[in-house]
């Protein structure tokens, strides 16, 4: 049986639709929600969490229609972890205890559970630390522990690891892989490695509509994105993010730090025979490793340390007389590098 059933779901903000006609049944298997910023991921998760109500349509949880009367019960069984963790004023312990205290759990049991939860996120000694003073990664681990301590039937996570360093990303991802065995996990993320590790089923949201869904390894939109998708560590210098991907540095105009995934559309990359003077902030040199033609369009793979797929027309391809194994330069603007 489905845990969530969503029929004809619409959510508007001041008349502007954020979600348009969402229909999906969510079973027990971990669900990944992918899509660009503003595609409706957060809105969808907040509706599942009982924090937002649909403008139209029906949402059922465990076979019961979600109405205002059952919202509290839903929220006691479904817990959400937000992209930017928020904390109650006080220590890590105060924060971890809160959900248990309002459920009337005894002090002794709270103490035991807090200690277990801190172990789970490898923050054993952090109980008395002031939550708001922790680093970003530690805060998100506390937020995760604060949700898991309640042993929810459903754990919702809204881009839980965006802007975190790789150590924290892998620590949190490992925990989520384990947790997805015990409860329904719904995660929205920009990290394609993460979604493939955690989710068994993925929906792809575009402007409030599910445009594709399926196995994360087979999904076209994931594969479409896996062409020219790079994951690396970003530092912001002089307003430009420098993303270290393997041995190369990709510059993007999005001011992001931490571990991020980037996408460069094949049609946004220019090929030249040698170094060119250009305003494009990214230029690399490498060898052509693949040439594929389809419908008058040529897809060329160029290995510059990372493989870039470049789309050019048949005509350009002929005029430049490009050949496999030949060295070429590629260039693209920092603003063509899209964060996922």
């Amino acid at each position: 049986m489905s845990i969530f059933e969503i029929k004809g779901l619409v959510r508007e903000y001041d008349g502007e639709p954020a979600l348009k006609n969402i229909n999906i049944n969510i079973g027990a298997q971990a669900l990944g929600v992918i899509g660009k910023s503003g595609s409706g991921k957060t809105t969808l998760l907040k509706i599942l969490a009982g924090l937002l109500t649909p403008s139209q349509g029906k949402l059922s949880f465990n076979g019961t229609e979600v109405t205002p009367a059952v919202l509290l019960d839903l929220r006691r069984r479904v817990t959400m972890v937000f992209q930017t963790p928020q904390f109650l004023n006080g220590t890590v312990r105060t924060n971890l205890s809160y959900g248990l205290r309002i459920r009337g759990v005894s002090d002794e049991e709270i103490k035991r559970k807090v200690s277990d939860a801190l172990d789970l996120v490898s923050l054993e000694a952090y109980g008395e630390r002031y939550a708001r003073n922790l680093s970003g990664g530690e805060q998100q681990r506390v937020a995760l522990a604060r949700a898991l301590i309640l042993d929810p039937e459903v754990l919702l996570l809204d881009e839980p690891t965006s802007n975190l360093d790789p150590v924290n990303v892998s620590l949190i991802t490992d925990i989520l892989v384990q947790e997805s065995e015990k409860r329904l996990v719904v995660i929205s993320t920009h990290d394609l490695d993460q979604v493939k590790r955690i989710a068994k089923h993925v929906i792809f949201l575009e402007e409030g509509i599910i445009t594709e869904q399926g196995d994360p390894y087979k999904l076209d939109s994931v594969n479409r994105f896996t062409e020219n998708v790079y994951t690396g560590i970003s530092n912001v210098e002089k307003g430009v993010s420098q993303v270290h991907v393997g041995d190369i540095i990709i510059r993007t105009s999005s001011p992001l730090t931490g571990r991020i995934s980037l996408h460069v559309r094949p049609q946004d990359i220019i090929i030249s025979k040698g170094w060119i003077e250009t305003s494009a902030r990214n230029q690399f040199r490498g060898l052509i490793t693949g040439v594929n033609e389809r419908d008058g369009i040529v897809m060329i793979d160029i290995d510059v340390g990372e493989v870039f797929t470049v789309q050019i027309t048949r005509r350009s391809f002929n005029e430049m007389s490009l050949k496999l194994g030949e060295p070429v330069n590629i260039s693209f603007k920092a603003s063509s590098v899209l964060p996922l």
């Binding site: 907040k46 969490a49 009982g50 924090l51 509290l72 929220r75 006691r76 479904v78 817990t79 959400m80 937000f82 928020q86 904390f87 109650l88 809160y98 959900g99 309002i102 459920r103 604060r146 949700a147 309640l150």
Partner: peptide
């Protein structure tokens, strides 16, 4: 900052108000 947090941790309307 408190509203969604307290709610998702299971707080009732009164408990949210107190938080």
């Amino acid at each position: 900052e408190v509203n969604d947090l307290a709610r998702t941790l299971g707080a009732s309307e009164t408990q949210v108000a107190l938080a």
